[in-house]
């Protein structure tokens, strides 16, 4: 009787744990019943074989037991997935290339091999992360049953009123806008993430060479890498949504605003911590650039301004999005 257990195992092994035992028990009885029904002189073994053969390929049987989706990203979202992936890949490629090119120019490292090696490994890790995060985001959206092609109509059934309005010229979003935003945030965050030591004040020093006074405490900034990645994801996601939508809708403007706020919140967590700044920055500038002592106050004010700048930027982002979203879609 070993054969029937093997058959049952073949059917149930790929099914969810919860159902396995139940389905197994049911199939065991079914095979028993079918065996009893087999008449004729064949041996028990041969009868069992006939029964199993008539039940057919266990993979197919398992397939019909399984009603859940067996794909990460379905056809309805696949085109958008590819589009976003291409843009993010392009942005990451460009961002890291530019960041590393600058790094190469200023680095003490003179061996070209070392520079290229560093570039390739940064590129690989950046692209791998981009791929992982985009795929994860789409997989989650898929799992929650989001269909991006239906985003304008929500879950309602199709009807004539739901035909999209031909967008007013002003509601249309030129693709260059989100693409530029994605490129900029990629470049900026790639610098913060991969090469924060480059964000520095470069002071010429005679007879030759430069003194670099880094703006950030790089070790401290490293602790915030996860938040930086989070900022990048929200930023890219909100711009990607703009790009996919192609016009301001109420839905888009609300989601865009939420993501903008989340991203700004993460930025605030990072930049409001005074210890991310190079503690000796002001002192070193004063020393190397012969700046007056009042620079200390300027510097302290600057760090506060950055926080204001983040809040203001987020406010402008959110208010223009909501304004455009609601104004051009008022019924």
């Amino acid at each position: 009787m070993e054969l029937n257990e093997r058959y049952i195992y073949a059917v149930t092994k790929g099914l969810p744990q919860k159902q396995r035992e139940d389905i197994g028990k049911e199939l065991r009885t079914l095979i028993d019943d079918m065996l009893e029904q087999e008449e004729g002189p064949e041996t028990q073994e041969l009868k069992l074989q006939n029964v199993l053969l008539s039940l057919g390929d266990p993979e197919l049987l398992a397939e019909s037991y399984r009603d859940s989706k067996r794909y990460l990203i379905g056809p309805q979202n696949y085109d958008n997935y590819l589009l976003i992936l291409k843009i993010v890949f392009g942005a990451v490629f460009l961002g890291i290339s530019v960041a590393m090119a600058i790094a190469g120019l200023f680095s003490e490292e003179l061996r070209i091999g070392g520079i290229i090696g560093g570039y390739l490994s940064a590129l690989f890790s950046g692209l791998a992360q981009a791929f992982a995060w985009v795929t994860l985001a789409f997989a989650i959206a898929e799992g929650r049953g989001v269909d991006m092609r239906k985003k304008q109509s929500g879950k309602e059934a199709w009807s004539l009123e739901l035909l999209p309005e031909i967008p007013e010229k002003k509601a249309a979003i030129p693709p260059a806008e989100p693409i530029a935003a994605i490129l900029f945030s990629t470049l900026f965050i790639a610098l913060l993430y991969f090469a924060p030591q480059l964000l520095a004040v470069y002071i010429p020093r005679d007879p030759s060479g430069m003194t670099m006074v880094p703006v950030f405490d790089t070790a401290m900034l490293r602790e915030y890498r996860l938040l930086l990645a989070g900022m990048y994801i929200f930023n890219t996601a909100k711009e990607a949504l703009k790009l996919v939508s192609g016009r301001w809708t109420i839905r888009l403007s609300v989601i865009f605003s939420l993501m903008s706020i989340l991203s700004a919140a993460l930025a605030l967590i990072v930049f409001s911590n005074p210890s991310i700044w190079n503690p000796n920055f002001a002192a070193e500038i004063i020393k190397y650039a012969n700046a007056g002592f009042e620079f200390l106050n300027v510097w302290l004010r600057l760090t506060t301004w950055i926080i204001m700048f983040i809040i203001l930027g987020c406010f402008i982002d959110v208010s223009t999005a909501l304004y455009k979203g609601f104004k051009y879609n008022a019924r």
Binding site: I23, L27, L30, M34, L55, G56, Y65
Partner: peptide, 11 residues
């Protein structure tokens, strides 16, 4: 077929 019916019953 039993192979059609059993999964259908569960569904």
């Amino acid at each position: 077929d039993a192979g059609t019916l059993y999964p259908l019953l569960r569904r």
